[in-house]
């Protein structure tokens, strides 16, 4: 049985994202966790390229890897200061949680059984033109709401993290 190039790419991205996700969840070292998150977020950008959504992929790298992941690392460095040894990440309720996770997996997979036959279309490239037409056309309410949300989040972050004036 021969595997086509496209399938190979698919499974490479899948392997990278699963590896990153498993590192985030199972490692005991907080820096490794952040790096696993980095691998995972980059692989999500890889998924977007795989589905021809290049703009989304670039935005993913910009916002997540360049923004959110740096914030995560920043928070780690501020909270777990270096020097006093590496804090170990601990887990609890592992058995119950595995059961919950597997149950959710089985439930949703069985619910999505009929989707498989519909996966036939070649993805159309999500070009900047198409995205702007969508965002300023049918998705305009979402777009405006996101602007308000971002402003609210910005204000909230400033108030929460800087609001200690004694």
């Amino acid at each position: 049985m021969s595997i086509s190039m496209i399938e190979l790419v698919f499974w490479m991205i899948a392997a990278a994202s699963l590896l990153g996700a498993l590192t985030v969840v199972f490692t005991r070292d907080v820096t490794r966790m952040a790096l696993g998150l980095g691998v995972f977020l980059l692989s999500v950008a890889g998924w977007f390229v795989y589905f021809s959504q290049t703009f989304l992929a670039a935005a993913q790298v910009f916002v997540y890897v360049g923004g959110v992941l740096v914030l995560v690392l920043f928070a780690i460095m501020l909270v777990h200061r270096s020097g006093a040894g590496r804090p170990a990440l601990e887990s609890r309720h592992t058995i119950d949680s595995i059961m919950v996770a597997v149950a959710v997996f089985v439930l949703v997979v069985s619910a999505l059984q009929d989707v498989g036959s519909a996966l036939t279309v070649t993805p159309l490239p999500g070009s900047p033109d198409a995205i702007s037409a969508a965002l300023l056309g049918p998705m305009l309410p979402h777009f405006e709401a996101l602007g308000v949300l971002l402003l609210a989040a910005l204000a909230a972050v400033i108030v929460i993290s800087g609001g200690e004036r004694s």
Partner: peptide, 8 residues
Amino acid sequence: TPPGETSG
């Protein structure tokens, strides 16, 4: 789905 909305 139109491609713009996928990315959107």
